[in-house]
Amino acid sequence: MSLHIENIHAGYGKANVLDDVSLQVNQGCICALMGRNGSGKTTLMRCINAMLKPSRGRVTTMGLDITRLSRLEIARLVSIVPQSSDTAFPFSSMEMILMSCANRIKAWSAPSSREHARARLVLDELEIGHLSDRPFNQLSGGERQLVMLARALFQDTPVMLLDEPNAHLDFAHQHAIMELMRGVVKKRGVTVLIILHDPNLVLYYCDRVAMMKKGRIVTEGPTVDVMNDRVLREVLGNGIQMEVTRKGRRVVTPRARVTKNISLLPDADQESEPCDVRTANGTVS
């Protein structure tokens, strides 16, 4: 049930966004996609989910070429958790989740009581059973993401795509989502491809990482091998650096004194002091 991306070329109109991208994600693995804005991460996800047809190359899962399948068949293989979501009508969380069983019920049917029971199990799995009857558009950003994650899980596909699921979330919710994903992968053995911008989340939670730059995958492999100072600077810019704590844990921090390549920093001329990473007992790490 692994995911194979073979020599994908894709773009919008005449603008080519993806240039010969190949990637393999094995079953039961969380693979992160990292890269700066506009590097082609979301476009790659759209190709995997057949929202965008590649001009060349193919995407296969379970040996099936995604581009040759119907929407219904794709929905039985791949589910997606979008970056953010809202709804114009006050559907309850349960109603939102139930929508994703459309890939296994007849067009004229509504979800049966069995589907309701299954949806409740998914809610319990994510420990959000209390949100079941609450209107989706009254939930906080974090709660909405958990409901959307539950919807993708209820879709019950072997491959899951998560497009920046941590965007707009506070620190605790970011980690909660990632912890949940680890649990889900361990329990269900699904294949997960996730776009993340925080290298520390990638270091903590992902088995593999693919670093993208200008529509190409620069490097790809196990997180421990790929994530190093050189690669991070090459892909994400000189504004960050990797440090190793005394316990051997790697953390990525903003790089001191380097401001030229970060156009968004307010005072480029102002020199800043190097920032230390301190552990709870006060030691510099």
Partner: peptide, 9 residues
């Protein structure tokens, strides 16, 4: 895109 990803044309 969400509707499509749920298998509905």
């Amino acid at each position: 895109e969400q509707v499509l990803s749920m298998g509905v044309d």
